[in-house]
């Protein structure tokens, strides 16, 4: 029995190895984040900076439909204070209604509101941008940085790295590629849907000034905003890893006890 288990594993490794060397887009840059690994936590200051990049740059075109302002004060997130969140929310205009007379009206955002979308509908978004800018709430879970059964098992799926690589990966296309350039598109070898992307390079060195004086090169901002988007996609990540650690300790102790119970039970039976 042991022999064919080994063989099975050997077979799987072989095929997993083959799986590493395929698929189109360039694999994402393997940068490291504070929230990776079994004990990883989000860097609060980084999430707050990432929020600022999102607010000042991304939110002009991209929606964030699954996130509410109140979430920004949640445990395990950017940890804005409740007052800060109220002020942040109030800086957005929310279309609401109908009021008692049946009219729609605009009002400042409340902490309980979801982030308002920059366009009224996907058609308007596509008309203004050439393609619909995807909603960003889940983007780091909806994209893979790299492929391969074993690669993803050890290194994760690489969603935040994909976003980082996309934001920092704009290049001048070679003269040969330039000839195939579709109207109004930009060359980005990291883009999953075939190297030509409708989004112009969104970041430039020094575009956003951080309150904490943190460096603001394109790479820094890309890292901060991709970390922020990792949190919007998985806001319960810290709670999950913490709970997981406790659950595993509990199960390990229980397994140990059960092992000895089983051993004792079977002690006088030859089997």
């Amino acid at each position: 029995m042991k022999k064919f288990a080994t063989l099975l594993i050997a077979g799987m490794t072989l095929f997993g190895g083959a799986a590493l060397a395929e698929e189109g887009a360039k694999p994402a840059k393997g940068i490291n984040y504070s929230f990776e690994g079994p004990f990883g936590k989000f860097d609060r200051a980084q999430l707050q900076r990432g929020y600022k990049v999102y607010k000042e740059v991304c939110s002009n075109c991209h929606s964030m439909k699954l996130l509410s302002f109140r979430n920004l004060a949640d445990k395990g997130g950017p940890s804005f204070t409740v007052e800060q969140v109220k002020a942040l929310a109030a800086s957005f205009t929310v279309h609401d209604g109908p009021d008692t007379k049946g009219d729609m009206f605009d009002r400042p955002g409340l902490a309980s509101d979801v982030f308002p979308s920059p366009y009224a509908n996907p058609e308007a978004a596509a008309a203004a941008n050439g393609a619909v800018p995807p909603d960003l709430t889940l983007i780091t879970k909806a994209r893979e940085g790299w492929h391969g059964t074993f690669n993803q098992l050890w290194n994760g799926i690489g969603g935040p790295q994909y976003v980082y690589s996309l934001l920092t990966g704009y290049e001048e296309p070679s003269a040969e590629l330039e000839k195939e350039k579709p109207e109004g598109k930009y060359y980005n070898p990291y883009f999953q849907a075939g190297s030509w992307i409708s989004m112009p390079p969104p970041l430039a060195d020094g575009l956003v000034t951080f309150d904490d004086g943190a460096p603001n090169t394109t790479a820094d901002m890309a890292k901060d905003v991709s970390a922020f988007l990792a949190w919007t996609a998985e806001p319960k990540m810290e709670e999950r890893k913490q709970t997981g650690f406790e659950v595993l300790i509990y199960l390990a102790v229980l397994a140990g006890l059960m092992y000895f119970v089983k051993k004792k039970t079977w002690a006088n039976v030859a089997h």
Binding site: K141, Q152, I157, A233, R240, K241, G244
Partner: peptide, 13 residues
């Protein structure tokens, strides 16, 4: 707890 989306497909998000 540590790889909840590993078995799934990212596109389903």
């Amino acid at each position: 707890f540590y790889g909840p989306n590993y078995m799934g497909d990212a596109v389903n998000y």
